[in-house]
Amino acid sequence: MFSRSLLRSSSATSRLMLNNTLKLSFRYQSSLIGKFNKESLINTYSKGPIDLRFTEDHEYVAAHPDQTAFIGITKYASDAIGDVTFVELPEIGDKIDQGDVIGSIESVKSSNDIFAPISGEVIAINEQLNDNAPLVNSDPLGDGWIVQVKVEDAEQLKELQNEQEYEESLKQDA
């Protein structure tokens, strides 16, 4: 959902304005995806196995065997948007369609839309983010999860990128 260009310097963006194809290299020492926090609810919710999927909008879906899935943004995205100050969450019971805007993340005066990576029904929201929005930065694939949904169509999950594919797509862009 977010692009690396958020980190570009202003002079770089001026050049970019005139040449949209210019890409700046983006160096990551650690994994581009971020550390999957095994202590957090997105892992401990069930005994697994967990199907971890990714979208082009830099969101992840951690699907459990009971056909529910946790949704959040990747480390890559949370680094790109900067310090998160507020997370606008949907409501429990909301029906969401793949691609819908289901909330937003505010960081440094910017409101960034969150999209539904899959269709389903919101069965839980991460209330912790109301008090501690920066969890999205510090532990995106863990305590910084955003919503849990009841998956409507398991086929949609299969069409999303797996970990290797997502990591590969990030490396290609870099």
């Binding site: 977010f2 958020l6 570009r8 202003s10 001026s14 949209n20 005066k109």
Partner: peptide, 15 residues
């Protein structure tokens, strides 16, 4: 208004 890829918090201010 610009693309998401070209989003910058400082660019248009500098213009």
């Amino acid at each position: 208004i610009n693309s998401k890829e070209s989003f910058s918090r400082t660019f248009f201010g500098s213009v």
